[in-house]
């Protein structure tokens, strides 16, 4: 069975600097996988390569067996590779209703329909409301995103990725800035995703990683340092050294 997402010899150079160094990585179907690493390890570059924001200098990326290395970002999304952002990337002047509506319409292939008012299809509305309810956004659907409290904006950030119906979901520090009490709620929502969705969690917070992930990969200086089950990584003295040497700040 082919991996949900796989990279072979993935490399990215910026001038003389190697930001991603020959990374061969496998995300199994249905995985709950975490990618960790000290600051500046190249996690964000890696995510940008996967989603197509950056072009790799060498290597291949395969999504469910299909080579997507040269594919435009939006086409990767259409094939089910969806990400969230570490810093909220939202549409300030729109409401959550419109935001989620765009994502759902786009996914259903209505993006070029210019003659029909948005919201005239009940399938779309039903799905917006369903997602909004799941992410506790139903009561703020009609407010401008810019005027929402931070917590709600963060939920919308994650909900927006869900609206794209991912088959592979990349979560870039989803809990960043979320109060302790709400973190586990958020992760529980992610964990409740059906098993045919594979999840890669990029995270700094070790508690969160250990409670969510089944496998962990460690990225150091752009290269894959080690990989293993949660307990293997937790007890790996080399990983500990990497983190302690960097001072654990997350």
């Amino acid at each position: 069975m082919s991996a949900a997402l796989e990279t072979v010899g993935l490399q990215k150079r910026f001038g003389g600097i190697v930001a991603t160094d020959d990374v061969s990585f496998r995300l199994e179907p249905g995985a709950r996988h975490a990618l960790i690493g000290p600051n500046g390890a190249g996690k964000t570059t890696f995510v940008n390569l996967l989603t197509g924001v950056l072009q790799p200098s060498a290597g291949t990326i395969r999504l469910h067996g299909e080579d997507i290395s040269a594919m435009a970002p939006e086409r990767r999304v259409k094939r089910g590779l969806v990400r969230t952002f570490q810093i909220n990337q939202l549409f300030a002047g729109m409401t959550p209703l419109e935001t989620l509506g765009v994502a759902v319409s786009e996914r259903m292939g209505h993006g070029y329909e210019f003659w029909r008012p948005a919201g005239s299809k009940s399938v779309v509305i039903d799905e917006i409301v369903e997602i909004a309810t799941r992410f506790k956004l139903a009561d703020v659907l009609e407010e401008r995103t810019a005027s929402l409290p931070y917590g709600k904006q963060r939920l919308l950030e994650i909900a927006l990725a869900f609206a794209c119906q991912p088959r592979v979901l990349l979560l870039d520090e989803p809990a960043a800035g979320v109060p302790e009490a709400e973190r586990h709620d958020l992760l529980a929502t992610v964990a409740a995703l059906p098993r045919d969705v594979s999840v890669l969690l990029i995270e700094h917070d070790m508690d969160l990683v250990f409670s969510f992930a089944e496998r962990i990969s460690v990225l150091v200086n752009g290269a894959l340092f080690t990989e293993g089950t949660v307990s293997e990584i937790a007890n790996d003295p080399r990983v500990r050294a990497v983190y302690l040497g960097e001072s654990l700040d997350g």
Partner: peptide, 28 residues
């Protein structure tokens, strides 16, 4: 009519944040 259509809404996402518009599958 165009500006309130799904097409029109997708334009507004591009105006507000082209990076995210791409990340939700909109061919910017």
């Amino acid at each position: 009519r165009i500006v309130v259509s799904p097409f029109g809404l997708s334009l507004r996402t591009i105006r507000d944040n082209p990076l995210r518009a791409r990340a939700i599958g909109i061919p910017v």
